[in-house]
Design a protein around this nucleic acid. Sequence first.
RNA 1: AGGCGCGUAGCUCAGUUGGUUAGAGCACCACCUUGACAUGGUGGGGGUCGGAGGUUCGAAUCCUCUCGCGCCUACCA
Length: 924
Amino acid sequence: MENSFDPHDIEQPLYTKWEQAGHFAPTGNGVPYCIMIPPPNVTGSLHMGHAFQHTLMDTLIRHARMKGRRTLWQMGTDHAGIATQMLVERKLAAEGIDKHAIGREAFVERVWEWKRESGGQISQQLRRMGSSLDWSRDRFTMDEGFSRAVREVFVRLHEDGLIYRGQRLVNWDPQLQSAISDLEVESEEESGHLWHLRYALVGGARTTGGKDHLVVATTRPETMLGDTAVAVHPDDARYRDLIGQSVQLPLTDRQIPIIADTYVDPAFGTGCLKITPAHDFNDNEIGTRHGLPLVNVFTPDAHLNDNAPAAYRGLDRFAARKRIVADLTSLGLVEKIQDHKLMVPRGDRSGAVIEPYLTDQWYVAMDELAAPAIEAVRNGDIEFVPKQYENLYFAWMRDIRDWCISRQQWWGHRIPAWYDDTGQVYVGRDEAEIRAKHGLSKTVVLTQDPDVLETWFSSALWTFGTLGWPDETPELELYHPTDVLVTGHDIIFFWVARMIMMTLRFVGEVPFRKVYIHGLVKDSEGQKMSKSRGNGLDPLDLIDGIDLPSLIAKRTDDLMQPQMAARITKATQRDFGSGIPSFGTDALRFTYCALASTGRDVRFDMKRIEGYRNFCNKLWNATKFVLMNTESVELGGPRELSLVDRWIESRARRMIVDAERATATFRFDLLASVLYDFVWHEYCDWYLELTKPVLWDEGASVAAQTGTRTQLLRILEIALRAAHPVIPYITEALWHRVAPLTGAAGETIMIQPYPEADDLAADADAEAAVEWLKTIVIGVRNIRGEMNIKPGQAIPLLLQGGTSDDARWLEASRSLLGRLAKIERIDWLDADASAPPAAMQLAGELKLFVPLAGLIDVAAERSRLDKEIARKVTDLERIEQKLGNQSFVAKAPEDVVAKERARAGEARAAVAMLRQQLTDLENI
RNA sequence: AGGCGCGUAGCUCAGUUGGUUAGAGCACCACCUUGACAUGGUGGGGGUCGGAGGUUCGAAUCCUCUCGCGCCUACCA
């Protein structure tokens, strides 16, 4: 074997082998276990967040498969409507092509081309991550079967009266020229102004203060052209008299009424609120209450339309704002302009400022869908991990609003609705069904609704649409409800909630029993990784490595804001001065698991992955050691397990118990640490070292050596299986070398059973003995280290006092001690004998002496003892104080008090012995 | 404005139902190329657990208040 582990030699061939052998598809007759992949968008390549998520899912899947479950990890991708359409539009624009020039059909064909390319890239990346997805069932949210499910759901909801078409204000993206849902609007605080505008009172009316005008304050002066009222609070004494009167709307020939509504806050501004029902959600509600007309002054691309006075028609909304403010200023109608912070709504895809805009759209009525979905979580049918996300879910669900599902886009599921010449709408699975159902003759021309459904409408059907619904398939019967959904908290509303609602409605059962919410992957400074920040990492670059120039090129290529390039280059040089070395998939996966603590975002730290690459190397070299000592040796004869052999087995048992618990509770971080600790700190640091004296002792019995050799193999083989779900490649590679020697050979580790704790013997006695041994070794090493005794220098050890256990354990491990602490000889001192000048360590009641002769600096030993005494005295004082507290003795449980008493005794004895030693030393 | 989360060693994070001296990795210091591994070994230093108050025999852990950071939701024009 090579001296260090090189992931490249093994990863891809192993994956290919697994895939070709069909190991990713469900097999056997075990209890089904199913996870649906959150379908990645076909917008490009996978990022760190995907790789993180896929690692966690694959870990669960591989574990379940090894536990004998009939395991399906469903593969698929999402058409990602707007995102994909924008991406392809941009690509076409780069070729100088406008989508309108080539037309809808050709455009959609171009998107399909892109989808094929992008989908291939995604599956390649997933394969590199080691993801054991069932590729044979790969689905796409716009494939034929899925499209059928989408139409079916739409039609049924429409029949049930839960889908309707309505004209109301929507969030309109003037750049996309499409409606978007509430969730797709992101509001951020931006600096703006508050314009105070004078609206003249009509008919000589006066305010209480004697003014002949009202002053309204607005952040959006351009919408004033659509005002249809001014509202005041009904109890506002300043204006009560004016209710029912009118004002002259400036720049127009319209007069609008002064109305009273309790929505108005008299304390804000002047207490007068301009009402623009066609361009503001709150105003719209007020308008409805008061029967106000809606005056829409915008075109779909947010230019002023013909409802505006001629002077402003055709102006863009921002240009119109400037012109209107200028005109009002010159008319003396601007009272003042204040700086003002306001929340500006922007489209999450386009970044354009969203307009509340009056259009006809399709909606899903949510109340009836939401109620059972709330109940399913409330009663525990679905459980969120971590639990606190349930509150987030409830809060949103209880306040849910109807869902606008139509998009004025080309890429997506066409809405299954048709119109005749008169505008009459028909909804059905296809045109033929509609004609038949409504008895429409061939002469009636039907035109399909040009709009598409928003992406999340189809994603909401993911768990059952992929399994063949609306047909009653065996897969649906077998794998649904799925076991767990693994996803990020950013899409709980977008996706998780809607899946729960749709699945309960159409399948009558929950889509999944658990929802594991993981954190988002951030960079080492806690910043979100994104293309525009230039701080993203490609998981493949961590696996394969990348040089600095390539990384910079990747990060600065094709930026939306090219001026960022210089800054990104600098930051990249700072963080990755010599590029990124190749770490391999297993190290990356282990890192993801180790970082996946509950409810926390993940800061990706290069130091961590480095450490876990080292861990893989450690495992590799441990295996190398074991093979060196077991290959070409006869292992068939009688075998005898030593104390140490039984100890590691007992520890392995604990490790399996802990690993199972961590996996069952989605504590991937604990799983990683359990594996790490066992392999490194128990198996390598102690077990391997403790086997050397046996393996290399010519006097050792063959049975003892055979026992140790077979145990080395057996425990390693178990550790490999235990770790396989996290680090599949290296464990598979090593397993093929190790397993044959244990007689446990098979085609692949991935379908071997997961280790069972009950197959390993617990041995409390062996654990206590080795624990003792470790204490002694560490005690002697401490003297060595602190006294600067050369590692090569063998030292004698004297023992005094101690219990019968001490004596027994010493005899059981005398030769091991010699080897591990480089002790040349061990002798007992009589209880009353005085020790020669020596450095002393306590191990309970046992005194360890390393004689000074020629080795030890007396002054150094004194200060070492001083330090130790100080430590023990502090300890003792604390305990005595506790025991001196009457209420502690009276109220604390007996065993706790007893424990403290024992500790006090121990500490007192230790202090006495250490002080005596110090005195002895001073007398030299 | 409301809700949620976080604050523990220089850094990134664990810390189960309150109960020995609060842990790990990395970083740091010293020593070591010993026959699995220098991607290594051995030893060591480093934290009054954001702050204040409270409950309790006992608090990193439970309660109240408070400061700082992050996220989500809703917004006064």
